[in-house]
Structure formats: C-alpha cells, structure tokens
Design a protein around this nucleic acid. Structure first.
Lengths: 205, 205
DNA sequence: TCCGATTTGTTGTAATTACAACGGATTTTT
DNA sequence: AAAAATCCGTTGTAATTACAACAAATCGGA
C-alpha cells in the first residue's frame, strides 16, 4: 500500500510532499513483535501499510484482552500520540507487518492544512464508530445488543438484507459476549421470525 | 462561561479573533428544547456554555436511550459536524441552556492552526475516553466491568483511594447495567475485601 | 428539627448469560 | 480425496443479572 494514497493525504496537491512534512519512517516487524508497549509515551502515529496487528490490554488484575484488530491501511495509536497520554494498551503484530510512523507533533503543527483537516475528519469518524459500539454494548440484554447492531448495519446499508463484517466469534467480541450465547440468541430471533440469516448475511424484517 | 477561555482556544494569541474565524452564533434554549434532531445534517459544532443537555438515541425498534450527558463547557455533535454524517442521535436540553455554535467547515479549513491543533487534541482525548469505556463494557460479567472501571480510575488518580464522578445510577448507566445489580456487586466485592467504599469514594486494594 | 425527596442497599424471582462440551458443517491443507 | 482445522449451532448447568418492590440511609429545605 502506497503512503501517498492514504485517506490522510486525500486532496493534497502533492501527497509526497505532504507526507515528507510528517517525518515518515517505515519499519518492518515479524509476526508476534510488539510495535508498542503499554506505559510508553509515543510520539508517532502508526499506519499499518501491510500485515495485521492486535491492540491488547494487559491488565494487572485480569488476563490480557484483545481490544481491537488493525487491518491494512488503518491508523493506530493516533489518539495516544496526539493527546500525549501514555499508552494503556500494547500493539502486537499478528502477521509480518510494515508500519509507517508519522510525527504527531508535526501533524498538530506544521503539516499542510489539508492533511490536518483530513486527520480531523478521520478522528471524527472514529469517534462515531466508537460511540455506536458503545450504544450497542450499553443495551441490557444480548438480544437488544444484537438488534441494536443489526439495525445500525441496516441503516448504513440502506437495505433489509446485508452482510456483517464479522464471523460469529468476531461479532461476539464486538458485542462483548460469548460466542455460543450469541448463536443461541440469533437462532431464537430467527425462530421468532424477527431476523433471517445465513453465515454473515442477515435480513432484518 | 466565556468562549475565549475554552480549551479550543488555548494558546492562541488572540482568542477573540480565533473565535470570530469560526463564525460563532449563540443561541438560548429552554428546558426540554431539542437542540438537534436525529437525521439532520449539522454543519456546526456545539459548545454548551451553560445549562445541561442529554444525547438521546430514539431507535425505531426500541425505546429512547440516553447515550450521554453534556455538561458545561463540553463539545457536542462535533464528530457528526466534522465527518459530514447525518445525526443518529438527538440532543435535548435538560436545563435552560446557552449554546455556542461554531462552523465545522471553518474549523476544517480556514481556522488558526493552533485552534485546529487543539481540536485534534480534544478529539484524540475523547477517543481515548470512548475506548476506555468500551473496554469496561466489553467485560463479560458485571464484577469485571466494575473492577475494570475502578482500576482505570485508580490509574488516573495514582492513589488507591479515589472518588468516582458518578452517583450509583450514573455509574450503572456508564457500565450499562441495572443500578440495583451494581449495588449488589459492589457490596459483594466489599464483603470479599476487594474494595471498600462510602458513597462515591472508593478504595481498591 | 422535622418532613419529604432522593439515593442507596437488600431481597426474591424469573430470565438471561457464561462456560464447557460436543457434533455437524464448512474450509483448508496435505 | 483424505485429513486436519476451523466455524457454527445446540445442549445442559451453574452463575449472573434484570427487574420490581421495599427498607434504610442520606440529603435539602421549610
């Protein structure tokens, strides 16, 4: 994936130049490598050019929890880098990965205005995504969580039949529940005639 | 609350000027008024100068749910305004309120760089806050949710004794559970000697 | 201080969910 | 094609939680 084609540089006259202003560094990591560790302060925004990684919380009291997955082209650690807070999570490569590191300081001052505006938009979008997930997670019962989620996907798709970007385990993680409990709720909803589904294709009536 | 003293304008040479570049409009709302309605596209970022408001989701299938409260000095609708997405929630005044509306378009291009940088930092912080809440909400049991939350407050406070900024009902809403169930879990943890508390002052051992 | 209102804890019950185990289906690898 | 691995739904059980109702404690005026 070419850095200049990233959404962050959309609309710039010279993406290459805009990129250089952010002091880019590329780094390769083997599978299993730690890109960042909890407790550090990080000055750089990460962009995963290729490969895959997990954001992991290793809590003192509890066992480690995978908070999110990072796919190709996605930003990570941007909030920590831009807010100056130390990391509360670690980032671990699940595949051999190529990472582009960009200076957060430069992004905050000294970058092309178009790039900063893009960043603001990206941050806003992520906020919306997080807020939506919170709305699903806040429902009291699993059935409500599932319906809240399916309705949000339907709204985004604009059709009653749509696909979800998860397998069952992924959806269970996203909704903060057990996979088999999710399966049970889904088939109950199917029996009740509220939804229909096959694999990750759903219909909401 | 004076607009020029807002964090958004911190570090500007002339806060008044920086404010004017964002085409500010002030508006007053009586208690119960809708500041924004789901489905609209909003071009403006809201800042609550005084009063109080709730962010409410009115779902087709379910009853309305209060997603968040907005207090004095807080931003709202900023993510929708900056990303261009239509609102999925409504905003309702719970008290007579004074709102400062600022042009999102201007913030994205044409604002003082310092202001844009401040916005980026604020968005980043909100991001972290939302992510943390998701981590709590994702735990499987209420006990884990509570401990996850209390540990995060302890980490922020740096001491084993600390106060939480919620009453019980507020904490229950934040953790997505029933208030009495929360009370029950808290006293179980107290009996087990894991925590101690009185009102909203907690000690985590 | 007294009263009313609000907040918080407790109890009981019904419903929900986690968890583990298993079997069938599907996919991938050899 | 066979074997292995993964994914998915089902079942049973124990634990958890929602929910409603109520009692105790706390708070805020009058």
């Amino acid at each position: 994936m070419k850095p200049e084609t990233l959404p962050l540089f959309a609309g710039t006259k010279d993406a290459k130049l805009a990129l250089l202003a952010l002091l880019p560094r590329k780094a390769e990591y083997p599978r299993g490598a730690r890109l960042l560790s909890a407790g550090e302060k990080c000055q750089s925004i990460g962009i995963l050019l290729s490969g895959g990684a997990d954001i992991v919380r290793e809590d003192a009291g509890g066992d480690p929890v995978t908070v999110a997955h990072i796919g190709q082209g996605e930003l990570f650690a941007e909030s920590f880098a831009c807010s100056g807070e130390p990391l509360t999570v670690s980032v671990v490569a699940t595949l051999p990965s190529l990472v582009l590191w960009l200076s957060a300081e430069r992004l905050l001052s000294g970058a092309e205005p178009q790039v900063t505006a893009n960043a603001l938009r990206l941050f806003a979008r992520k906020n919306l995504y997080l807020t939506q997930r919170i709305e699903h997670l806040s429902r009291r019962t699993l059935e409500q969580k599932v319906l809240s989620y399916l309705r949000s996907v339907r709204r985004a798709a604009g059709t009653n039949t749509f696909c979800v970007p998860f397998d069952r385990q992924g959806l269970a993680d996203f909704l903060g529940c057990d996979r088999s409990a999710l399966s049970a709720v889904l088939s109950k909803l199917k029996r009740k005639g509220v939804i229909d589904y096959h694999k990750n294709s759903f219909r909401l009536l």
